[in-house]
């Protein structure tokens, strides 16, 4: 198993290089360092000298990939790509274009992101699984039909409506919780209730429907019939056999996205002014802070690949028949 993970990790390196090259290309073709400088320096009274100075200070005055002016190995190392992109492999994110330590910022902003993502995930799982079981238990009856219709209706509503509506209803009209904001420590709870509720509700529709189909698939299998035929209590059938087996696809589905929880939610975080990594990314795009964007892309890719590996591992854990090779 360990050897397998190592091999998979090694396989990730060319992917990360590819990701790196692609983002580098995309962002530098689009945004010359001059553009970045102009955006950072503001509007009023910006001189060409100031732009040159800004670039020189941040090392953006070098050639992109190949330095003809330098000699020997410096031709490749005295370039923006080498200095800015390759260091990421050592998880050295460097400094953002306005001079902040990106690693430090990521460390700080991860917490609020997780503070939304983890409760949303857990509460969501609990609710979705219960609903799905309920629907599966009452399969074919009006409960099931109306439940499925409700799920489809819920998943047909854009997340934007949930957020705007939630803020308006719970925050403004009913005044039950703060409309937006964030605070450290336990004070954070009252700020997190609303985004978590919205996060859960916007996910209920699709997940319940998906989980229901997992349950139905298991329920149709022979061992469930056998268990029933043996005269086992319905509760035992439901929880011991049905739930346990349906959990396999549910858990593997969750494991894939587990690492990506770190990346935060773009929409929730910007609407609720929560200083997580999602809003960090959006801000960086808007400010065209290439250093942060690069770091976030890299981080996202790493986490995605970790997710893939975790799924494989999870399969072996929950289903002993699968062997990693």
């Amino acid at each position: 198993m360990f050897a397998y993970i190592v091999r998979r990790a090694a396989y990730a390196i060319p992917i990360l290089i590819g990701v790196n090259l692609l983002t580098f290309y995309l962002f530098f073709v689009v945004n010359s360092p001059d553009d970045m400088a102009r955006l950072h320096l503001g509007v009023k009274r910006v001189t060409p000298e100031a732009i040159e100075k800004w670039k020189a200070e941040r090392g953006y005055n070098k050639p992109l990939m190949y330095n003809e002016a330098a000699a020997g190995i410096d031709r490749l190392t005295e370039t923006i790509f080498f200095e800015k992109s390759l260091k990421l492999f050592a998880f050295d994110f460097g400094h953002s274009d306005d001079g902040r330590d990106i690693s430090h910022d990521i460390g700080q902003r991860m917490i609020p992101s997780l503070a939304i993502a983890i409760p949303s995930l857990l509460v969501g799982l609990l609710i979705n699984i219960s609903f799905a079981m309920l629907l599966a238990f009452f399969r074919g009856t009006y409960v099931d039909v109306s439940g499925v219709i409700l799920s489809v209706v819920l998943m047909s509503v854009s997340a934007m409506f949930y957020i705007i509506g939630g803020q308006f209803l719970l925050g403004k009209l009913l005044r039950l919780m703060p409309i937006s904001g964030y605070d450290g420590g336990l004070d954070a709870i009252k700020f997190l209730v609303l985004p978590v509720i919205i996060g859960v509700i916007s996910g209920i529709g699709s997940s319940t429907r998906l989980y229901r189909s997992f349950f139905l698939e298991e329920a149709g299998k022979d061992f469930i019939r056998t268990a029933r035929a043996k005269g086992l209590k319905e509760s035992r059938v439901l929880f011991r056999h049905l739930l346990a087996n349906a959990m396999i696809p549910i858990i593997t589905g969750v494991v894939v996205i587990l690492p990506l929880l770190f990346m935060g939610s773009l929409l929730l975080e910007s609407f609720f002014a929560i200083p997580g990594l999602g809003s960090y990314t959006i801000d960086a795009i808007n400010r065209q802070d290439f250093a942060i964007v690069r770091a976030m892309v890299f981080l996202g890719s790493v986490l995605y690949i970790i997710g893939l590996i975790l799924v494989d591992v999870a399969y072996t854990v929950v289903d002993p028949r699968v062997r990693l090779s």
Partner: peptide, 18 residues
């Protein structure tokens, strides 16, 4: 000074007196 990105929350909080 709190970070407030969107205008709507700011406005609503102002109306609530915050």
């Amino acid at each position: 000074y709190s970070l407030e990105k969107e205008d709507i929350p700011y406005w609503n909080k102002f109306l609530q007196g915050y």
